[in-house]
Simulated assay, not measured.
Amino acid sequence: MKDFHDGSIQGYTGYLSHPYHTPHDDDADYAGYPRSSREALVTRAIAAQKAGVQMFIHANGDQAISDVLYAYRKAQEAHPRTDARNVVIHSQMTREDQLDEMKELSVVPSFFELHTYYWGDRHRDIFLGPERGTRISPVKSALNRGIPFTLHADTPVVPMDPMLMLWAAVNRVSTSGAVIGAEQRVPVLDALRGITINAAHQNFEEKERGSIEAGKFADLVVLSGDPVSVDPMKIKDIQVLETIVEGETVYKTGR
């Protein structure tokens, strides 16, 4: 079940625990807003949990994430499931204490890591300020806790470009060339897991997809270079030469 609890930071509709860095409409106290009350969110989460449905709830601001984690906790208390794998989609402003709570609840943070590339400069300078703005999409903090995070592009908000997604998680470089939070960079293999085996795990498909091994679908790509060994800044330039889905070639370049 997909649900929404706030909007976007760049749209001034992300729900924060503290006001935006640059006031919206000259309101120094403005911190965004939720789509519904916390109580209404809890009611929907409990109903989904009771029905055995996995939840994917959109939350960008840290206050929205706080409400979502509260709802997931209440849903688990009402109808415990040992392996719910509920997801916080975007998880952009996740704080360290919230990552601890995600691990405790076995919640999956799915990071829209390309925020660092497309909006990193403006988040730092306009919407969030340097302290919060350089800590968006805290993938390394999730990795340090052993949380099986995933990465996504939120297409059509930005183009579906897996190599750019990988590049962004490894380098955290904005469109201006600035580094947005170097301490949140992750190694290439860990970023790859975020769009392969961890993504399969998130969707309860880890026995069929996500890695190349006997007994799984032959889902793979042939690349023009090795992302693990090339200069990290060149990862985004690697081309997909062939795409194979369930053993069948569905795309191939003329090269």
Rank of each mutant, 00 (worst) to 15 (best):
K2Q: 12
F4D: 14
H5C: 09
Y12R: 15
Y15P: 01
P19D: 08
H24Y: 15
G32L: 01
E39R: 13
L41H: 03
R44E: 11
K50E: 15
A51C: 10
V53M: 14
F56I: 12
G61K: 06
D62Q: 02
S66V: 01
Y70Q: 12
K74M: 14
A75R: 00
P80M: 14
A84C: 00
V87C: 10
V88I: 15
S91V: 08
S91T: 14
T94S: 13
R95V: 10
E96D: 15
E96T: 13
L99E: 00
E101R: 09
K103F: 05
E104W: 09
V108L: 08
V108Q: 01
F111T: 01
L114H: 06
T116I: 06
D121A: 08
R122H: 10
H123C: 03
D125T: 09
E131T: 07
R135K: 14
S137F: 06
P138D: 07
G146I: 13
P148V: 07
F149H: 03
F149G: 02
F149V: 04
L151I: 13
A153V: 08
A153C: 12
D154K: 04
A168Y: 00
A169W: 04
V170S: 00
N171D: 01
R172P: 12
R172I: 13
R172K: 11
V173G: 00
V173D: 00
A178T: 11
V179P: 02
I180K: 02
G181L: 12
E183W: 07
R185C: 01
P187D: 12
L189R: 12
L189N: 12
D190F: 00
A191S: 07
L192C: 10
T196C: 08
T196Q: 10
A200K: 02
F204W: 11
E206A: 14
E206R: 05
I212D: 07
I212W: 13
G215D: 08
G215R: 09
F217C: 06
L220M: 15
D226I: 14
P227C: 10
V228S: 11
V228F: 04
S229C: 04
P232L: 10
P232N: 09
M233Y: 07
I235M: 08
V245A: 01
V245E: 03
E248P: 04
T249E: 10
T249G: 06
Y251W: 15
T253Y: 02
G254P: 03
